[in-house]
Write a protein that binds this DNA or RNA. Structure first.
Lengths: 190, 190
DNA sequence: GTCTATACTTAGATAGAC
DNA sequence: GTCTATCTAAGTATAGAC
């Protein structure tokens, strides 16, 4: 039941937003009365925090694992892009909540979630900085590039449909190409 | 007063989200009572629609202008990137609302706002398709690339600070570089 | 562990005076 | 054009029975 409630919350938070999703509706989808939710969670906010924390920890662990497993910057980049897009398409609703409901966090919960997001950005920045120092990646502003790549791969979740025109793997290939080689054809390079 | 109310709404919708921003607070910032808002706007939703429609029309007009003025695909791309980033940093709060509160739109208003967004995407797709046909841009999935570039340039608004480390112009140069040439150094290209 | 009933608060919106 | 006063609905959360 605890999981059913959380699944219902994920669905409604993603569809209508945290503040627009009534606890009564979450309860209805989970098949119980609103009051019964309070046996499993202390309040509505706790649902939001658990959804966000779970996904961010998952994301961080997977990227840490990639950095430990691989030393080659190009392999790391490819794996990190694929990992980000796979998780964001697989847990589409959950990550949509992570990306849009930060401001719905109570002041006492916000720092924790932001620190998890910060950790993820730092892992990416480590990957990028190493690649630039090795002369594999073009030297640029590490922070800006990390924000850019993360935003790019995150946005996939907003339009991707599992039954759509493209498979996840095809999307990964397209994004990888864009991130590594850019839009211009080589002969146009300066 | 009409503009004061709208400015207050922009501030609070951006900071707390549409549903979490009480009309009474909007009124307080505008310096009037909540009931007085209804002399200027029929309801809260009308504030949201006006904010979104105004910005999207502005964005569309500027890109249409660029496509009319320039024929060279590379010039068009540079101008479109700069235009998007400039508007998104100049009207940061307004565009943040456009990008996060689509789901707060009532069913009768949503199609209109989505059609404006659709127009913008189509203008970008026209730009990209032409460049690919001319052999200036790498051939790829036009829709996916348009989503990617728009997401990339939109995200700038989430972290950019006017008094921060980088100027708008510096950010534009960095993003332009990333979009056109990608992350890898040329000798690493396949 | 789930229920019914309800307390408490706050929201958007309206009525009518000035 | 703005106010005070108020309506009505809806939200989160609690109390206490089963």
């Amino acid at each position: 039941m605890r999981d059913s409630i959380l699944a219902a919350a994920v669905q409604l938070f993603a569809e209508y937003g945290y503040h627009a999703a009534p606890l009564r509706d979450i309860a209805r989808i989970a098949g119980i009365q609103a009051a019964s939710i309070y046996h499993h969670y202390p309040n509505k906010q706790a649902l939001l925090v658990e959804i966000m924390a779970t996904q961010m920890q998952h994301l961080n662990q997977s990227l840490e694992h990639i950095l430990q497993e691989h030393q080659d910057s190009l392999v790391r980049l490819d794996a990190a892009i694929a990992n980000h897009i796979r998780l964001h398409t697989m847990y589409k609703a959950e990550f949509f909540i992570v990306d849009t409901e930060i401001r719905a966090l109570d002041p006492e919960n916000r720092p924790y979630i932001l620190s998890l997001r910060d950790t993820y950005e730092q892992l990416w920045q480590e990957l990028l900085r190493t690649g630039m120092e090795q002369g594999i990646f073009r030297t640029s502003d590490v922070k800006v590039v990390s924000y850019a790549i993360i935003a790019l791969c995150t946005e996939v979740a907003t339009w991707f449909k599992p039954e759509g025109r493209l498979t996840v793997q095809q999307v990964i290939v397209l994004y990888r190409q864009l991130i590594t080689h850019g839009l211009l054809l080589p002969d146009q390079s300066v």
